[in-house]
Design a protein around this nucleic acid. Sequence first.
RNA 1: GGUGGGGUUGCAGAGUGGCCAAAUGCAGUAGACUGUAAAUCUACCGUCCCUGACUUCAGUGGUUCGAAUCCACUCCCCACCA
Length: 315
Amino acid sequence: MKVFSSSLPPPFPVIMGPTASGKSFLALQLAEKYDGEIISADSMQIYKGLDVGTAKPTKEERAKIPHHLLDIIDITEKYDVFAFRDAAEKAVKEIRERGKLPVIAGGTGLYMRAIMYGLDELPSSPELRKSLDEKYDNEEKFPELVAIMEEKAPADAEAFRSHRRKLIRAYEVLLLTGKEMTFLQQAWKREPRKDAQSFVLVWENSVLKERIALRCRQMLESSWIEEAESFIKNGLLSSPTAWQVLGYRQIGQYLAGMLKKEELFEKISIATWQYARRQNTWFRTQHPEAIRISMQNKNSFRDAERVVMKFSAKE
RNA sequence: GGUGGGGUUGCAGAGUGGCCAAAUGCAGUAGACUGUAAAUCUACCGUCCCUGACUUCAGUGGUUCGAAUCCACUCCCCACCA
């Protein structure tokens, strides 16, 4: 059966879902069966060496199926959505040129939206931004920026007054374009791309919570603590962007004797759960284009695979 | 058995006569999100017929116009002494 017009390439699947929802597993199954390659859309798995803590696909899995955008930068480097978008689009193009099926899987909402809806080009100036960060990215001076913005860009000031980073970026954009961020945002695109179909893996809260707890336990019992110790020694917690990874900070507290092992487990499970909920909110509200696949247990993966293939690439 | 300190809304923990449905933190729930996003931020968070009403601060009974706050007894917890 032919579902798609021959002039268009079949849509490739984009799998999203909260942590521990089984995205990677599903992506792997799909890639194996349909001659695909996987593109990871994960803001932390891009870092070299953060393996256990980010539940990165194993060496074996990666040997079986090519994975892209894993281990591409060092924790000392900065990364952002635009860099991701460019890298991901390039990977999609190359995989297609090889005649293979791109399968995107990941949990970083913003990155997912960048793929499905694109990003709107806004000017940026690393030098300007750097100086603005140095000046205003602290408790004491930030109020001055708020005052400036209230004067020059009241709508932005209102929208971002409690988001330091966002207000600084808004100021950067204001200086570069003379326009308010909130004004520019009105013109941003809202249509999802046509050459991909996105899916969200949806688990019932209680079940997902259990999966998360189980996985946190396993991660802590394997070599996560050692991994964290060595990365913390190498400055992970004061790195430009990688410091934001979940869990490593808590392990640092444990290593410093501030937490008992069980408390560490509790803290990490809770933080991971909170993260999963934010992800679910994102996918629910930011991705109306996505097909929601309800998951009950391990058997659901078979059904999920069927759903994905029905709506995306043809067999 | 004796002495002292306690029992507060899921947890921790303020509050010692009215401004208390009760600070604050945590957890929980909903939401926001375009160059740091596994981050950051917002709202709600006793019950209800929800711009007001009702039931709460171990229990019972008092004092008082009025109590989580004062008194008495009861039950429980902790510390120390025996």
